[in-house]
Amino acid sequence: MSENKSNWPLWEVFVRSRQGLGHKHVGSLHASDAEMAIGNARDVYTRRQEGVSIWVVPAESITASSPSDSEALFDPANDKVYRHPTFFVLPDEVNHM
């Protein structure tokens, strides 16, 4: 077994499945640099025409919100139902608005 293992950094992979759609997170992989990460992402995540474009991002560059902050971040939206159009009841005569 190798003692001084050279550990390639971790990259998060995002794939655009077709033109007109956004890139979507599909998983991660290890690669020594960005170019190799694109090549590996092609082999690992698009063997069956799952994509037309790939983003790779060093995993350590991603800042994620913490589950413990989710109340503070997302709960305020709960009591603002008037943001949704269905909050406003229209007279039957008005079909579309």
Binding site: M1, S2, K5, S6, W8, S32, D33, M36
Partner: peptide, 14 residues
């Protein structure tokens, strides 16, 4: 083990 030099070379290149 046979692949070790490849992994090392990739890191050295980067």
């Amino acid at each position: 083990d046979d692949g070790e030099w490849v992994r090392d070379a990739a890191v050295a290149y980067s």
